[in-house]
């Protein structure tokens, strides 16, 4: 297996790589664990101006709540502010956006990877230009038509918009993956009498999962983390998690409940952890097993 070859390294090199990876994992994960720990403190500890070590010991937490840990942030976010509703909305949006993006994207990406006419190139270029458009400008432009058509504020509208503005990325990424799948594979199927669609259905779909899963991960994260679109196009009751979290942060007028936001972020990341662990076989072994032999 290629994995075995690629990993057969000498000890010093291995140590170097592991050391580097160790440093990176700390850099990547430390802020999150700090947040996880801090989410059980009060705001004046987690964002302590007096001494950052208060976040470790919970000095003010003890004074204000009587214990070194408090679930006040979670209680506030979930019970007082009804964060569950936002989580449910996010679930709908992310699942729909990922599914629709991938369906559209695999079809488009496959076509772009298999057509050799010049217009293919130009479609790819135009898609890039589309992607260059700043989202805030697009969203400001949607507002008036959406209000006039009376489709503003609904989850379905945001889903369609997110799918559309995600398409350039999706087709580009999937096209790169399809390019790596040898043309002979589907062309020989077509020689055997399959139509193009049958070849796609029976030959390409079984081997495309590594690319689709990776692209799906990004589509998912885009929908999950989106703020520009969801903040402007959803009404309050249909809000997804990120605008909801933003509303905890306060404004000029109003002191925020920053600890609600912190607790909400931690609880929003927990399902992702489960998701990645659940999909890790697909991501790790799926990629390896499904990989196309060159």
């Amino acid at each position: 297996m290629s994995e075995a070859l690629a990993t057969r390294r000498s000890l010093p090199l291995r140590a170097l790589l592991m050391g580097f990876l160790f440093l990176w994992l700390i850099a990547a994960a430390f802020p999150f664990f700090w947040t996880l720990w801090g989410s059980f403190k009060v705001q004046s500890d987690f964002f302590s101006i007096q001494d950052w070590r208060n976040a470790l010991w919970g000095t003010r937490t003890v004074i204000e709540t009587g214990g070194a840990f408090t679930g006040a942030g979670y209680e506030g976010a979930w019970i007082q502010e009804g964060f569950g509703r936002a989580v449910f909305n996010t679930l709908i949006v992310t699942v729909c956006v990922t599914a629709i993006s991938l369906t559209f994207g695999t079809l488009g990406g496959y076509a772009l990877s298999r057509s050799s006419y010049n217009y293919t190139f130009w479609i790819l270029m135009v898609a890039l230009v589309f992607r260059a458009m700043p989202h805030i400008t697009l969203v400001s432009g949607y507002l008036l038509p959406f209000f006039e058509l009376n489709i503003w504020g609904y989850l379905s509208t945001s889903i369609v918009v997110l799918v559309a503005i995600n398409q350039p990325f999706t087709i580009w990424m999937l096209r790169s993956f399809f390019m790596n799948i040898p043309k002979d594979l589907d062309e020989s199927a077509m020689v055997d009498g399959c139509t193009r669609f049958q070849a796609f259905r029976y030959v390409i779909i079984p081997v495309m999962w590594p690319g689709v899963i990776t692209t799906g991960l990004f589509s998912f994260l885009l929908a999950y983390n989106d703020f520009a679109v969801t903040a402007m196009l959803l009404s309050k009751e249909n809000q997804t998690m990120i605008p909801k979290i933003a509303s905890f942060l306060g404004s000029t007028q109003q002191e925020g409940n920053v600890m609600f936001a912190v607790a909400a972020v931690v609880s929003a990341t927990a399902p992702l952890f489960v998701l990645v662990l659940f999909f890790q076989r697909q991501i790790v072994s799926g990629l390896t097993a499904g990989a196309v032999k060159g």
């Binding site: 990547a28 994260l221 983390n225 972020v265 992702l272 990645v276 890790q280 991501i283 790790v284």
Partner: peptide, 19 residues
């Protein structure tokens, strides 16, 4: 691998707003 992948993805997963 699974654990390393998850932790490596964390910077991308926590919303930039709060991150």
């Amino acid at each position: 691998k699974g654990l390393a992948i998850f932790f490596s993805l964390l910077p991308m997963m926590v919303t930039p707003l709060v991150g």
